[in-house]
């Protein structure tokens, strides 16, 4: 194959990868995503999670990730685990000492989107997937511009 063709193929692959970046599934969970892993690969889902984070007033306890009444969400310390499935379970079922269960208040898809967004706060998602803008004025760095936190550390 000539190098011109190789370049063309590379460009096409890059552009197509862009389509996947924010592919939207509006209702329900895609069948190809049984373990929820893919939510954190999708810019649209992460952005929806970011909106829900404010809508459901998560800031009330966790601030913008720095924590307050509840633990910080942007560092590498996770009491109940920092994998997306573990975060999903913390949101869905709640945890003792005050974290409420959201399973009757949000849909399953929304809980996955929130979990994916929480992963983006310490930038445990790809840079091109993490949100780069805020609806409100915000003096902090956008998620996409943050350094990735240290590798996940189990336990306190």
């Amino acid at each position: 194959m000539s190098s011109a063709w190789a370049r063309f193929a590379l460009l096409a692959a890059l552009l197509l990868a862009g389509c996947e970046r924010e592919k939207r599934v509006y209702s329900g969970q895609p069948a190809t995503n049984p373990a929820g892993e893919l939510y954190q690969e999708n810019a649209y889902d992460v952005a929806q999670g970011k909106r829900l984070y404010t809508w459901m007033n998560c800031t009330g306890c966790h601030a913008h990730g720095g924590g307050g009444i509840g633990p910080a969400l942007m560092d590498n310390r996770w009491i109940y685990g920092g994998k997306i499935q573990q975060i999903y379970r913390s949101i869905r079922d709640g945890r003792k000492n005050g974290m409420p269960a959201w399973k009757n208040r949000l849909t399953d898809q929304q809980i996955w989107q929130l979990a994916a967004y929480v992963r983006s706060m310490g930038r445990y998602v790809r840079k091109d997937v993490a949100p780069s803008r805020d609806d409100a004025l915000n003096s902090g760095k956008a998620e996409s511009r943050r350094e990735r936190s240290a590798p996940l550390e189990p336990g306190r």
């Binding site: 509006y26 209702s27 329900g28 909106r51 949000l106 849909t107 898809q109």
Partner: peptide
Amino acid sequence: ADPQAVKPGANMPKVD
């Protein structure tokens, strides 16, 4: 039944 079928992308989710 499905807000997303009527107004795709609207900020009301499909609730089962």
